[in-house]
């Protein structure tokens, strides 16, 4: 048994067995046994240590991640009220089928996409441009980098509070500034495009600097000779950016797109605090999926519905994740 073990684990036993010096039979036996024990230990170690390494994470994950996920899945098949969360009435897929005809659901879904796009696209484009500029030889570059990262340190609550004041209709600074150009006061919160724009700017403000640094880092790892040969070919700065920088950054760009997509699908704090209510405006003009989930669960007390919405969000993200995966594979192949 022992010897078999040793043979079947040559890589690990080699060290132990190989170093044992020849000696008296008894000692050799002992040494052999010790080596065997050791190798057994190693084998067990090799086999089980991965599980040991992941177990702390999975222990917490099971308790605080998986359990809630499954529980919510179970709850989504029931009619549950916040009045008495333990009393569940089985309704099958009703909560899901009802979503299909639920205009508020579709409204919040489309709001989520619109806000997602108008926050992600300009944000990443600006980050790309800024990273390009920061990549020049530049005085005070560290100052610029740190300054642009400060919004990242600001909490959603603090950021939204100040933006909501700046966007005030009658006495906000933005309308005051526009007023200098003869533009009438805009009811940012009341309008649908304006409110979505306002919420998007909060997201843009918080994340542009962070993404800039990510891009900058990626840009700095683009090999010099690519630029040099492009310069030799007479490419202008802009052409170099377009034909050297951007293609080299493709994986990074794709990644930031996905992370931003996940973030904007789960968008919650900004729209909630912007108007101060989970309805996301008087006619839900900036209610996102996360907000709708919250309204159903904690204002209307329909926990089953809220759970179903949560699972729909989950599904949307999985689809996005799959798309990302496929595109990434494509990219890898084309390289």
């Amino acid at each position: 048994m022992t010897s078999q073990d040793m043979r079947s684990a040559p890589a690990t036993s080699a060290a132990g067995a190989g170093t044992s010096p020849p000696g008296p039979d008894g000692a050799d036996e002992r040494e052999k046994r010790r080596a065997a024990r050791r190798s057994k230990w190693y084998q067990r170690d090799a086999k089980w240590s991965p599980y040991a390494f992941i177990s702390p994470f999975f222990l917490f994950f099971a308790a605080f991640g998986l359990f809630p996920l499954l529980y919510t899945g179970w709850a989504s098949l029931h009619r549950v009220s916040l009045h008495s969360p333990t009393e569940m009435e089985w309704v099958g897929l009703h909560n899901f089928t009802r979503l299909l005809q639920d205009e508020y659901f579709w409204n919040s879904l489309s709001n989520t996409f619109v806000i997602g796009i108008i926050s992600t696209v300009p944000q990443l484009l600006m980050a790309l441009g800024l990273a390009h500029l920061l990549n020049y030889k530049l005085r005070g570059s560290m100052f610029f980098r740190v300054a642009m990262l400060t919004p990242y340190a600001t909490s959603v609550a603090a950021a939204t509070l100040v933006f909501a004041m700046l966007y005030g209709r009658d006495f906000g600074m933005i309308n005051w500034g526009l007023g200098l150009f003869g533009i009438d006061n805009i009811d940012w919160e009341g309008g649908s495009w304006t409110s979505q724009f306002a919420v998007a700017t909060i997201v843009i403000w918080r994340w542009t600097g962070y993404n800039t640094l990510i891009y900058l880092a990626a840009m700095q790892s683009v090999p010099n000779d690519l630029y040099e040969s492009a310069a030799l070919d007479g490419a202008s700065r802009w052409q170099q950016f377009l034909h050297v920088t951007v293609p080299s950054l493709r994986p990074t760009i794709l990644f930031t797109v996905v992370i931003s997509t996940i973030g904007s699908t789960q968008l919650f704090g900004e729209p909630l605090l912007f108007g101060g209510s989970p309805s996301g405006g008087a006619s839900n003009q900036y209610q996102t999926l996360g907000l709708y989930l919250y309204e159903q669960g904690w204002t209307n007390f329909h926990l089953g519905r809220a759970s179903a919405i949560a699972w729909m969000m989950f599904l949307v993200l999985i689809v996005i994740g799959l798309v990302y995966f496929l595109v990434a594979k494509r990219l890898q192949k084309s390289h």
Binding site: F144, R237, Q240
Partner: peptide, 25 residues
């Protein structure tokens, strides 16, 4: 030569970066 990152930034760069710095802060 004029390889991308080694160029010194022009005034335009400073203006744009300054604008975004102000916006961030």
């Amino acid at each position: 030569g004029k390889a991308g990152r080694h160029l010194y930034a022009g005034w335009f760069t400073y203006v744009v970066l300054g604008f975004f710095t102000v916006g961030s802060l």
